[in-house]
């Protein structure tokens, strides 16, 4: 897909994120919308994958560490053809394959990991990247982290080990929306200077506007060329991106849209 097609796809995915969380009556709207551009870029441009063969051995692996934004992962997987789009409205309902946080035990194709307890996904991604190296495979492992999640100490255990093993087949992305449940990350628990932190741990750091399709694609493209170091993209996103009514508002971290919200937002979707 070219950039314009990707932008259009991201808009469709946003609409399905909103619809599915609305149907569920609960869920993480803000973070899911903020990552819609990143997920669209990954599944429609960056990842080497086959939706009709979700277990294809040579596929790139995508580990979603922040399980709470899984609605955007589900919507993207459905648009990519992993499962029917009409299943998206079963999100969070009893018996659904679309669990509130990703649960592989319910059989949804395309999920690499059951996750949602923060601070665990990067380690799992490293385990996968180590095996790709050991078995001399060319697939890459991608990992999506939240910025608030970086307050978990285990993330930095993981960061240290990825650099120790020079995992240039691992590309992490931090959703740097600068907010978490209690508010601004810098007042809850300061993360800056974030770029320096990752660099000092031995990572190659890229930064981009995580809601700008061209910049996302360019970052991933240059990330793939880095050698001997793991790569992290600090993606500056807006919580609720694409919906002007809620953009940047941390109160939308864990809130579902009402009927009225949907009506108001529909026509303004960017």
């Amino acid at each position: 897909m070219n950039i314009n097609e990707l932008k259009h796809k991201a808009k469709e995915i946003r609409l399905d994120v909103i619809r599915s969380i609305h149907a569920a009556g609960s869920g993480h709207t803000g973070g899911s919308l903020g990552l819609a551009d990143v997920f669209t870029a990954l599944y429609f441009s960056i990842l080497n994958h086959k939706p009709d063969q979700p277990n294809w051995p040579d596929r790139d692996r995508l580990i979603l560490s922040i399980g709470h934004v899984v609605p955007v992962h589900y919507a993207t997987l459905a648009h990519a053809g992993y499962f029917p789009k009409n299943e998206l409205i079963t999100l969070r309902k009893l018996g659904s394959r679309l669990q509130g946080h990703p649960g592989r035990d319910h059989g949804l194709p395309g999920l690499e990991l059951s996750a949602g307890s923060l601070g665990q996904g990067l380690s799992v991604a490293i385990g996968m990247a180590l095996i790709a190296k050991l078995d001399k495979k060319n697939w890459c492992t991608f990992c999506i982290l939240g910025d608030g999640e970086l307050q978990e100490g285990s993330v930095w255990e993981a960061a240290m080990s990825a650099a120790h093993y020079k995992l240039d087949n691992l590309i992490a992305l931090v959703d740097r929306n600068k907010v978490q449940i209690d508010g601004d990350t810098e007042s809850v628990m300061k993360l800056e200077p974030l770029k320096k932190k990752w660099e000092s741990f031995g990572w190659h750091v890229l930064e981009c506007d995580g809601n700008n399709m061209q910049e996302i694609v360019d970052s991933y493209t240059s990330a793939k060329k880095i050698k001997n170091k793991p790569i992290v993209i600090i993606a500056h996103t807006k919580m609720g991106a694409g919906v002007p009514e809620i953009e940047g508002n941390y109160q939308w971290h864990g809130k579902a849209p009402s009927d009225k919200d949907i009506e108001n937002w529909k026509n303004n979707l960017k």
């Binding site: 580990i63 690499e112 380690s123 285990s154």
Partner: peptide
């Protein structure tokens, strides 16, 4: 020796790495 990974004093990371390896057939 080629199937041994030193992970240092970081047990939580070790559990996650083990998970990622197991999900890929090890």
């Amino acid at each position: 020796p080629n199937r041994f990974y030193s992970l240092g004093i970081a047990e939580q990371n070790a559990v996650g790495i083990a998970t990622g390896m197991a999900l890929n057939g090890k």
